[in-house]
């Protein structure tokens, strides 16, 4: 303690023993300074992993290809039924060939084009649902976790919503809105945020009473700064991970909904639809390609997202930083 400080303490001693200190950003910065950068370390660790680089390139090229595929030369429409010039009838179940790289399906549509179109549909659904999950889920989760008075009520509401079978909601929605891309997105958004909200709420409950937050609060740090500097960095990393993991989850869910007959209409190709179509011919070995191609593409996508999400979670965990 310097001489000067001692004098200051002496000076205020008579008025009051303790007063609240004014928050001084500079002083705070000085105390907290190190050349450690959270995001820097995270990214450094993330990119150090060779598996990650591999999957990152794989995923990026998949997404890129799925996006630009229709604009490439010599690509076929995903819904056009190819007709044999000889008989005038649809070219059904053509095995992979020069003309149809992945063959054709049971009514003569090009499987290659359908798989990429399906990938776009499924990814788009997954991304929209993922973003919604994040926005709405975090919003609800934050309120739930931070506002103590609401906790009991929200927990009850969560239990209720969580126990209503999704199938009922989906059937009602499909009945009211008719099966379509929009209906699918609405249906998944309607229930998808629940897990996220609970997750965020639990994280906030755990973190908000941690010692360093308590200390920050005692030091007079404003709530906004606690949230942005103390809570969010921790949350953002896990949230990014949740989004990455929610994409394979949503795709799996779409597959399930298609399986129980509540999926997209079949003239909109999606990975779930393609898989379901493939499943119906799987017992014929010569036609199994109709199941295997979509299954492989779907697996590559879900595995890449899953691996990247987990690697990111590891990288973003400060305990792994050095």
């Amino acid at each position: 303690m310097s001489q000067k400080e001692l004098q200051v303490i002496q000076a205020i001693e008579d008025e009051a023993l303790f007063t609240f200190a004014e928050f001084d950003p500079e002083a705070a910065e000085r105390v907290g300074y190190s050349d450690y950068s959270y995001w820097g370390s995270t990214l450094k660790i993330f990119f150090k992993n060779k598996t990650v680089i591999f999957f990152l390139i794989l995923m990026a090229s998949l997404i890129l290809f799925a996006t630009i595929q229709p604009y490439l030369p010599n690509q076929k429409s995903s819904t056009k039924i190819h007709v044999s010039p000889v008989t005038g009838h649809p070219l059904q179940n053509q095995e992979p060939s020069k003309e149809h790289w992945f063959g054709t399906n049971v009514i003569g549509q090009d499987l290659w084009a359908r798989i990429w179109s399906g990938t776009r549909t499924s990814l788009l659904i997954a991304i929209i649902v993922g973003i919604w999950e994040v926005c709405f889920g975090i919003f609800i989760g934050a309120i739930w976790g931070y506002v103590r008075q609401l906790d009991a009520f929200m927990t009850e509401a969560y239990n209720v919503i969580n126990n209503i079978p999704t199938t009922i909601l989906l059937m009602l929605l499909a009945y009211i809105l008719r099966p379509s891309f929009r209906t699918m997105v609405i249906a998944m958004c309607a229930t998808g945020w629940l897990g996220m909200a609970r997750f965020v709420r639990n994280q906030i409950v755990i973190i908000r009473d941690r010692e360093y937050n308590l200390a920050s609060r005692c030091l007079g740090t404003p709530t906004s700064r606690i949230i942005t500097k103390n809570l969010l960095p921790y949350l953002v990393s896990v949230i990014v991970m949740r989004i990455a993991l929610s994409i394979p989850g949503t795709i799996g869910w779409e597959v399930f909904l298609t399986y129980i007959g509540l999926g997209l209409p079949i003239d909109t190709p999606s990975l779930g639809n393609l898989l379901n179509e493939g499943r119906q011919v799987m017992m014929a070995p010569a036609l199994r390609y109709q199941l295997i191609f979509p299954a492989v593409v779907l697996s590559v996508i879900t595995i890449s997202f899953y691996v990247l999400g987990n690697a990111f979670a590891d990288a973003s965990d400060p305990r792994n930083h050095y």
């Binding site: 059904q92 179940n93 049971v106 499943r279 119906q280 011919v281 799987m282 017992m283 014929a284 070995p285 010569a286 036609l287």
Partner: peptide, 26 residues
């Protein structure tokens, strides 16, 4: 509908409907 043709070939059942999609194959 998917399993029956295979089970018929394995001799486990008396009859099966052959789905449209695998008809060519048969």
């Amino acid at each position: 509908s998917t399993l029956a043709p295979e089970m018929f070939l394995r001799g486990e059942i008396t009859g099966a409907t052959i789905p449209t999609a695998s008809l060519d194959e048969w």
